[in-house]
Computed example of a mutant assay.
Amino acid sequence: MSVLLNGPIQSHVSENLDEYVRQFNAATPCRHVIIDNFLDTEYAEQLYADLPGVDGMPKSRDYMFSDKRELSTLDRHSQLSRRLHDVFMSPEFADWLAALAGHRVFVDPEYVGGGFHAGAEGSFLDLHVDFNIHPAHHDWLREFNILLYMNPGWEPSWGGELLLTDDPSAPTISVEPLFNRLVIMESTDKSFHGYHKIAFPSGRERRSIAAYAYSHVPAGSIDRRTTTWVPEDASPVKRALAKNWNWLVLTKNKFLGSGTLKNRR
């Protein structure tokens, strides 16, 4: 199987699609695939230099469960980021994702909860599974997390590896957040992921670009779930909050709306 991808995407992404599908379906603990050198090298370097400054990115609304920043403006940050947006929105990329999913999926064009992510010194993200139904579209079911890492010269001592597990009490596998590495992972009620506190050098942040793929489902056919947290080595108070987080956030959203939708300033 071959899908011709337009734009600044390396040719192997299309040429090796069958192998990526095989790797995705064989991967444990949750299905995922790792694609190195996803973007044309020159373009990836330009995109990295053009990333938004951390001070201009809102803090994540995950509160005590994370310390990172998010800005969901990949489509309008710059002409360079718009090129990547155009790839994610293209019919060719939709066909490529459909080969992984086994059915039609599409990328959220507004990157709710996604877009540019950055974590400075001490940043962390507790283990969690993501919300399943889109905050603004009750007939969109989340299928994939699409994570492009942008960390040139990354060293193991910096930390920040993506942790994946289907059981928070069991060992995780870790994926190094290397520059120009794309990770696509399924999003289910058991696809727990996160990263431990980082120690990046002064003036450097853990950088990534996130997009999320969805499929259409009948509105109301699936119970809505917000982010489910399972923090490690947490205080009793934090564990109690995590246990009740779904109810608390869904109740808050009912009256005040979703805070995640506000990260497009």
Score class of each variant (00 low, 15 high):
residue 118 A to Q: 13
residue 129 V to E: 00
residue 83 R to I: 06
residue 90 S to M: 09
residue 89 M to D: 01
residue 132 N to K: 05
residue 124 F to L: 11
residue 85 H to D: 15
residue 83 R to G: 02
residue 127 L to S: 04
residue 88 F to M: 15
residue 129 V to C: 13
residue 77 H to D: 05
residue 78 S to D: 07
residue 109 P to M: 12
residue 130 D to W: 02
residue 94 A to I: 10
residue 126 D to T: 14
residue 81 S to M: 02
residue 111 Y to M: 12
residue 100 L to D: 07
residue 122 G to M: 06
residue 85 H to E: 08
residue 83 R to L: 11
residue 124 F to N: 07
residue 100 L to T: 13
residue 90 S to L: 06
residue 133 I to M: 04
residue 88 F to N: 08
residue 90 S to Q: 08
residue 108 D to N: 06
residue 129 V to I: 10
residue 82 R to M: 12
residue 92 E to H: 14
residue 102 G to Q: 12
residue 77 H to F: 11
residue 80 L to W: 03
residue 107 V to K: 07
residue 100 L to K: 09
residue 91 P to E: 13
residue 93 F to E: 00
residue 130 D to L: 04
residue 128 H to E: 09
residue 110 E to S: 05
residue 118 A to R: 09
residue 92 E to K: 04
residue 108 D to K: 07
residue 92 E to V: 03
residue 84 L to D: 06
residue 119 G to T: 00
residue 133 I to Y: 03
residue 103 H to M: 15
residue 114 G to D: 00
residue 123 S to I: 06
residue 97 L to Y: 11
residue 100 L to Q: 09
residue 134 H to W: 10
residue 101 A to R: 03
residue 89 M to V: 00
residue 95 D to R: 13
residue 98 A to Y: 08
residue 95 D to S: 14
residue 132 N to D: 01
residue 103 H to T: 13
residue 83 R to K: 15
residue 103 H to K: 14
residue 100 L to R: 13
residue 123 S to E: 03
residue 121 E to K: 15
residue 104 R to G: 03
residue 122 G to L: 09
residue 95 D to E: 15
residue 115 G to L: 08
residue 122 G to E: 06
residue 84 L to A: 12
residue 104 R to H: 10
residue 125 L to D: 05
residue 89 M to W: 00
residue 123 S to Q: 07
residue 83 R to Y: 03
residue 86 D to N: 15
residue 97 L to Q: 13
residue 79 Q to C: 03
residue 109 P to K: 12
residue 110 E to I: 01
residue 104 R to L: 06
residue 97 L to H: 08
residue 109 P to D: 10
residue 108 D to C: 03
residue 81 S to D: 00
residue 107 V to F: 10
residue 85 H to C: 10
residue 95 D to A: 15
residue 107 V to E: 05
residue 94 A to Y: 09
residue 129 V to G: 01
residue 95 D to G: 08
residue 118 A to I: 03
residue 102 G to I: 08
residue 100 L to G: 07
residue 106 F to E: 03
residue 86 D to A: 14
residue 94 A to M: 15
residue 117 H to R: 13
residue 134 H to A: 09
residue 79 Q to T: 07
residue 78 S to W: 11
residue 119 G to V: 00
residue 117 H to C: 08
residue 101 A to W: 02
residue 79 Q to N: 10
residue 117 H to P: 10
residue 134 H to Q: 10
residue 94 A to S: 15
residue 97 L to T: 12
residue 115 G to H: 11
residue 78 S to Q: 14
residue 77 H to A: 12
residue 133 I to F: 05
residue 112 V to A: 06
residue 84 L to Q: 09
residue 125 L to M: 14
residue 98 A to P: 02
residue 105 V to S: 07
residue 127 L to M: 11
residue 131 F to T: 08
residue 124 F to C: 10
residue 116 F to E: 06
residue 118 A to C: 07
residue 127 L to G: 04
residue 133 I to H: 06
residue 93 F to D: 00
residue 103 H to N: 12
residue 122 G to D: 08
residue 96 W to L: 02
residue 96 W to M: 01
residue 109 P to V: 08
residue 98 A to T: 14
residue 111 Y to Q: 06
residue 85 H to W: 12
residue 122 G to K: 09
residue 81 S to H: 10
residue 124 F to D: 04
residue 79 Q to L: 07
residue 77 H to M: 04
residue 103 H to S: 15
residue 128 H to G: 10
residue 123 S to L: 05
